[in-house]
Design a protein around this nucleic acid. Structure first.
Lengths: 207, 207
DNA sequence: TTCCTTGTTGAACGACTGTACAATAGATAA
DNA sequence: TTATCTATTGTACAGTCGTTCAACAAGGAA
């Protein structure tokens, strides 16, 4: 007898699609549960697949986390650059910073995931490398925006230090906001950074 | 027959001393191994006691971590205030910041432990409360130093925002330094903050 | 249709986890 | 000395963990 209602036991996906789905499931678990969410069984359940499949795509947990880190970091940076728009340079810099205080980054779950990335950077070479790349890309983007905003070439060595400073200020406010019981208003954080930019634009090129 | 060489099976300490020893052992484990070090067995081994004793002093792991968090945070803040000295107000502020870029804080192990604190603040009410207290004390100290340095009353509401800003800058540089493969020189971080203070001191009181 | 590749399953393994708890022994008071 | 208190021990328990691997099945090729 035929089995017209035969239920397929599983969907067989293309490797790329399955990899992407596993990364997304990992990010959801990390946002929701932090390090506790980083378990093969939970990620498998979140992705709707069985335990063994994860190791078929990622030789170890570290590789999965590194891939998730890079995926999220690239997405966030792309979002910020998108929000910066293509107007005049100063507006781009300010737009970038304003978007940083939007709901996609100023989110407790996102920091919760990020903290796992930072923690694993101490243990896993793959995650450390992912951090190095992501952080480098972020600061490079910031440096270019800052150089344009002040109309100077981005290669000025001193500018890298200023970009590190602004990047640190952003990160610090981000951590502070996400961990505080009653955090400052997002607009307040944006205002702090806007005033920082005011001073940056007003200061001499050697500073 | 007497047993003159009878070996005592264990040293019985006063509760306070044992509590302190457990907290110190926890801090060493966290610095060395991060979250992996946060296991009753490892802490017990580090402290030279057996597993069960931990639960005798701390009803759960969260309480031990919260106590360790508060101990470390208080110690660090006390060290910074000590380093600030009792000279003129501006020198005190600069001394505080200079000490922040010293080996007791700018240390990968310390951040590694601190990341565990941040991670657990999402899961444990006790740790979150410890963070709230520690962070509040740190920013209050910073705000007072800044108020004195500019010769204005510390209750000025705007000053709290500036203290949050400097605190975020410090935290951000700390994280950046500890996680970077090849970090900037500590003096460079101190110089960034010193220039920040220059601008702070030069800016009008409403800013 | 039949064959083959490989995406997918799920049980199994040994190691580790936090906590509970009865038993032990050091210290102090009577 | 003896009794009492409690700091301390270490086993036990019920889980969860990451990873391995033989078996299964979906989909395309022949």
């Amino acid at each position: 007898m035929a089995r017209p209602d035969k239920r397929r036991d599983f969907d067989r996906l293309q490797p790329d699609a399955r990899r992407a789905a596993l990364i997304e499931a990992t990010l959801r678990c990390l946002r929701r549960e932090g390090r506790d969410g980083l378990s093969a069984r939970r990620i498998g359940a979140e992705a709707g697949i069985s335990i063994g499949l994860i190791n078929h795509y990622f030789p170890s947990k570290d590789d999965l986390v590194a891939a998730a880190y890079e995926t999220l970091a690239e997405r966030q940076l792309a979002m910020l650059l998108e929000a910066a728009g293509d107007g005049d340079p100063v507006a781009r810099l300010r737009g970038f910073i304003a978007a940083y205080f939007g709901p996609e980054i100023l989110d407790r779950g996102v920091l919760r995931a990020w903290i796992v990335f930072w923690a694993m950077a101490f243990e896993s070479e793959a995650v450390r490398a992912a951090h190095e790349r992501s952080n480098g890309a972020f600061q490079a983007a910031l440096r270019d925006l800052m150089a344009d905003a002040r109309g100077e070439p981005g290669e000025i060595p001193h500018l890298a230090g200023r970009a590190t400073e602004l990047s640190a200020l952003l990160d610090g406010l981000w951590v502070e906001w996400c961990l505080a019981e009653t955090p400052f208003a997002p607009d307040e954080g944006r205002a702090i950074c806007d005033r920082w930019i005011d001073r940056f634009l007003a200061s001499p090129i050697t500073d």
